[in-house]
């Protein structure tokens, strides 16, 4: 089943008089259960493509579909609802809310979609277990290591059981061991839980985990191939 699709998407930015083209007509479909790497050098358009699939940004032209709805026709609040209900994000910087504990960060998406208190508490506990932080729920982000913060971010992305999770350079700010732990966690969630992941990276060790590798260069898709994973 298809969870997201972009059709002939372009995205250009104007910086003063100079127009830069971050994406030049990219088409791509993501199927349920995929573990896909978006690769390419810096400035190739990986992040922009993730943001467009993730309904964080709108394309200059082309169409975007998420879970059957055409995103390009939706209003701001409807896009916010789509992000809330269907899409999980993991960012390069760990992107936790610093005033909230690990527990409360994971709980946030569930509060936003009005999950009742009982199931909400059960879900947060289950997720803390899943990412191996059962004893760290009461800690604020500044009391956690980078690897732990990224695992909390993954748990938060998983909380509302999204159709897919977008991860932008999820290991870029982690050391090798923590990076490996995060990738192992993502792989396990994909294999055992069927969670769909699309992640941008230029780290060859991370690319090695992918089962599909989509390569971008200068805003265009140059290859799309199955990989070992």
């Amino acid at each position: 089943m298809e969870v997201a699709r972009v059709e002939n998407v372009t995205r250009s930015f104007k910086l003063g008089d100079v127009e830069t083209h971050a994406l030049r007509g990219v088409s791509l479909a993501i199927q349920d259960g995929e573990f896909t790497a978006l690769v390419g050098p810096s400035g190739s358009g990986k992040t922009t493509l993730l943001q467009i699939i993730g309904c964080l940004d709108q394309p200059t032209s082309g169409r975007v579909y998420v879970g059957g709805s055409e995103v390009t026709r939706l209003g701001r609040d409807q896009r916010a609802d789509l992000r809330r209900d269907k899409i999980g994000y993991v960012f390069q910087f760990f992107a936790l809310i610093p005033t909230l504990t690990a527990y409360e960060n994971i709980e946030m998406p569930l509060l936003l979609n009005n999950t009742p208190a009982g199931p909400r508490a059960a879900r947060v506990k289950e997720l803390l277990d899943t990412v191996g932080l059962a004893s760290r729920g009461g800690h604020r982000p500044d009391q956690l290591s980078g690897g732990e913060q990224q695992r909390v971010a993954i748990a938060r992305a998983l909380a509302k059981r999204p159709a897919f999770i977008l991860a932008d350079e999820p290991t870029a700010n982690l050391d090798t061991t923590n990076g490996q732990q995060v990738m192992d966690l993502m792989t396990r969630l994909n294999r055992e839980g069927g969670v769909t992941f699309i992640f941008a990276t230029h780290d060859p060790r991370v690319i090695g985990y992918a089962r599909r590798v989509v390569t971008l260069r200068d805003g265009a898709l140059v290859s799309d191939a199955a990989a070992g994973g």
């Binding site: 916010a80 992000r83 809330r84 610093p98 998406p109 936003l112 979609n113």
Partner: peptide, 16 residues
């Protein structure tokens, strides 16, 4: 600013 971005990425509406 960044936190506002994170919250809206999590699906927080403008009114929230």
């Amino acid at each position: 600013t960044r936190e506002i971005g994170i919250l809206s990425a999590l699906g927080m509406r403008r009114r929230q």
